[in-house]
C-alpha cells in the first residue's frame, strides 16, 4: 500500500465556528426543500402502488433535460417551464405505468423492481446518446442572486424552491383530500380488491397516481435546475436521499415528505459541519436506519 498516500484527516472534526451554524441550518432547510420536492412524487407512488420505483432518478433527469432544452433552445425561463414540463411528465408517467410497468408486474414486486431498473438503464443511456455526457447548466439572470435572511445569504433559486415545495405539498394534499380522483387513489392505496368492487378502474387510477408522482418530478426539475446542473447520471445523487425522506416522513404522507426533506437537509448540513463533508453523509443513513428500526411507519405515517 502506498502508505504515504493515506489521508491523515479522515475524521476532520474540528469544531466549526458557531457563527456559521444559523446560515448552515437555513441553507439545509432550503436544500432540504429541493429534496422534499423529489420525494413528494416518490411517496405518492410508494404509498399508492407500493412499489419501489428504481426509475425515479432517471425520470428526474428527463425532467431536468426538458427544462434545460426549453431554456437553451427556446429561451423559456425554468419557472415558466412549470407550465409545460410537469404536464408533459404527467403524460410520460401515465403512459409508462399503463403501457409498461403495470403490464410487467404480473402481481409480483420483484418484476416491478426489474422493470423500473430496466427502464432507468434505457432512459439514462438514451439521454447519453441524445444529449451526450456534457454537464449542462442554465444561465439565468437570478442564478447568482441571494436573499439575506438572519445574516445568511440564501440563493434566490433555493428560496423559491422552498416555497415551491410548500405549494406543491399543499396542492397534492388538497387533491387527495378534496377530489374524486384523490378519494379513488386513497381507496386503492388501502384496499385494492375493495376499490375494484366499488367500480374503480384500478389500471387508470394507478396510472394517474404514477403520472402525478412523475409530474412532481417535473416541478422539482424546474425548481432545481437554476441552482444545479444536468448530466445523464444526475438522478443517482437524489434517489437514495428521496427514499430516505419517504421512509422518514411515512410512506404516502405528503406532509411527512415535506418535513422529512427539511430534516434531512438540516441533518446533512450539520453532519457536514461536525463530521466533515464526506463522512457527514453517514448521518442521513444512520437516521434512516434508526427510523426504520424503531418507527417504521415514519414520523407521520400510519401503522404498517
Amino acid at each position: 500500500m502506498p502508505s504515504g498516500l493515506l489521508p491523515s484527516h479522515p475524521l476532520d472534526t474540528a469544531m466549526p465556528d458557531l457563527a456559521i451554524i444559523i446560515p448552515s441550518v437555513l441553507n439545509g432547510i432550503t436544500t432540504g426543500s429541493l429534496y422534499a420536492l423529489i420525494a413528494l412524487g416518490l411517496t405518492l407512488i410508494y404509498g399508492v402502488l407500493h412499489i419501489i420505483n428504481f426509475a425515479h432518478g432517471a425520470l428526474l433527469m428527463v425532467g431536468l433535460y426538458a427544462v434545460w432544452f426549453l431554456n437553451v433552445q427556446l429561451g423559456i425561463d425554468p419557472y415558466w417551464a412549470l407550465l409545460i414540463v410537469p404536464p408533459a411528465m404527467f403524460a410520460l408517467g401515465y403512459a409508462l405505468q399503463r403501457g409498461i410497468i403495470g403490464k410487467a408486474s404480473h402481481g409480483r414486486d420483484e418484476n416491478i423492481l426489474l422493470v423500473t431498473l430496466g427502464l432507468s438503464i434505457v432512459i439514462e443511456n438514451l439521454a447519453l446518446y441524445v444529449f451526450r455526457s456534457d454537464t449542462r447548466i442554465v444561465d439565468t439572470p437570478y442564478s447568482f442572486e441571494t436573499v439575506e435572511f438572519l445574516g445568511a445569504f440564501l440563493p434566490l433559486p433555493k428560496v423559491i424552491a422552498f416555497f415551491g415545495a410548500l405549494v406543491t405539498a399543499t396542492v397534492l394534499w388538497l387533491l387527495m383530500a378534496r377530489t374524486d380522483l384523490g378519494r379513488a387513489i386513497r381507496a386503492l392505496a388501502k384496499e385494492r380488491k375493495g376499490a375494484e368492487l366499488v367500480g374503480i378502474n384500478t389500471e387508470h387510477v394507478y396510472a394517474m397516481s404514477f403520472g402525478l408522482g412523475i409530474a412532481c418530478l417535473g416541478v422539482a426539475a424546474c425548481l432545481l435546475l437554476p441552482s444545479y446542473y444536468v448530466t445523464p447520471q444526475v438522478g443517482h445523487g437524489f434517489v437514495l436521499i428521496a427514499f430516505t425522506i419517504v421512509v422518514l416522513g411515512g410512506m404516502g404522507s405528503f406532509v411527512g415528505a415535506l418535513i422529512g426533506g427539511l430534516i434531512i437537509g438540516v441533518v446533512e448540513a450539520m453532519g457536514g459541519l461536525f463530521l466533515g463533508e464526506s463522512l457527514g453523509q453517514i448521518g442521513i443513513f444512520v437516521i434512516f436506519i434508526l427510523v426504520l428500526m424503531f418507527r417504521p411507519q415514519g414520523l407521520l405515517g400510519h401503522k404498517v
Binding site: P16, I20, S24, N27, G237, F238, A269, G272, E277
Partner: peptide
Amino acid sequence: RDFTNIVLQ
C-alpha cells in the same frame, strides 16, 4: 449536492 456548508467554512 450543495456546497454552501463548505463555503461557509
